[in-house]
Every structure is written in C-alpha cells, then in structure tokens.
Amino acid sequence: MQQPVDTGAAEQRVQKQRGFAPTLVHTDQVIREYPSGEGILRAVNNISLDIPERRLVCIKGRSGSGKTTLLNLIGGLDRPSSGAIWLDGDWISDLGESEVVTIRRDKIGFVFQTFGLIPILTATENVEIPLRLAKTPVDVRAERVEEVLEMVGLGERARHRPHELSGGEQQRVAIARALANRPKLLIADEPTGQLDLRTGRTIMQLMYRLVRETGLSAVVATHDPTLIDLADRVIELRDGELVSDSG
C-alpha cells in the first residue's frame, strides 16, 4: 500500500537544492515492501537521496541489499510502497503508467547484467529499438545509431549479431542502445556481472567517459569493490537501508 507523502515539502527541498547543485533524481523516504511468506520483506527502507546531473554514482552492497530494487524504483520500473521519487521535473511515483513509460523512453537508459540484447537483431537494429519506440524519423535514427555506436567504439561491428560479439562488446551495444534516445539518466544494474575484471573495468571506464562527455548521469549498481573507484560518488546499501554515502 503506497503511503501518502508530503510531496510539496519535498519538492521545495529539491528546488532549493537545484538552486546550487542541479539534481536529476531525488528520492524521499522511499520504502519498498514485498510480501514474503507470511510476513513482509522491506527491500528498500526509507531511503532519501539526491543524484545530481553529470555524475557517475555507484550503489554498492551485497546481494539482497536492495540495489536492484532501488534502481527499479528510480527507473520507474517499480513503484514505492511509500515515499516519493522525483526525476528531472516529475514526481514519477505519482504518475500513471503511460507517463512513466514516456519518461523511461525519453529520459532513462537501462543497462543490464545480461545485456538484454535481442539475439536475432544486429547491433545496429538493437540500438534502433528505443528510437523506433520513440518513432524517431528514419534519417535521424540512422544518424543517431551511427553516433552512439561510434561513441562506444563499435562502429565496425554494427552489422554483427550479439552471438558474434564478445561479452564486453555486447555490453557496449547495450550501453549504445541505452544512449540512443539521449537520456538524462543511465541506470546500470551490475553491468559487469558477466564480464571478466578487465572487460568490466573497460565498461566502467566507458560509462565514466560518457558521463563526462555527454552530460548524463549514471547510477550503477555493483558489488564489485574494484570497479567503484571510478565513481564520483558511492552509496552503500545494507538490508535495504542506506548505510553510507560518499557524496
């Protein structure tokens, strides 16, 4: 059951913060509970945080700490049981399904541990999908695909299908796809989870570079401590609670 939240006060706080440090995401006392057996599991417990623009933020924590749940909430894939989430001018926790879909399409890019590529499509076609979903004109679409594939260094592998690419290349295609609609926020859930350490670090470096070059913010969940040194800010979760925030 979603709890009523004083969004007015929270918005004032966000606006105040935006005045001196542009905030892209704000979560206000967000709680997410799931029924579990006979009881209730609180996957995210009363988390309030701000994510500014142009930052690479890492969320770390062990398995089950609530990283994925928090990312899903920020990305509008899930709704909080209570609390509110603000994303680039919208209280997405209050919006209807269709508005959230639009925000996901236009403002957020997702990257998953398993890459989430459609195996029957080439790299180009995979990257085209969000542009097709946004009904981007064909000529603009072609330009944009070329641009993002070049950006992730896969211009020459554009005609290849996922199974013809290495794990790192597949993840780069996934990142290119996430960037295709020029989102403001990149959400990556364990993007290096299926990659070796070296490739994983390359992917993190790519995201770091993208944040710097394109002006987007990236929120990356990982429990790999060797990768988080590239982050601008590190948030640690434990049992659904925010236990540390370097920023």
Partner: peptide, 15 residues
C-alpha cells in the same frame, strides 16, 4: 524476456 527489456526502453503494454 524481450518484452521486459523493451518495456524498460519505453514500450507500452499495447506494443
């Protein structure tokens, strides 16, 4: 699985 990924990219339920 594919529809799940598509929905993260902004596909509607109708799509």
């Amino acid at each position: 699985r594919d529809v799940g990924y598509l929905r993260t990219m902004g596909a509607t339920r109708d799509q």
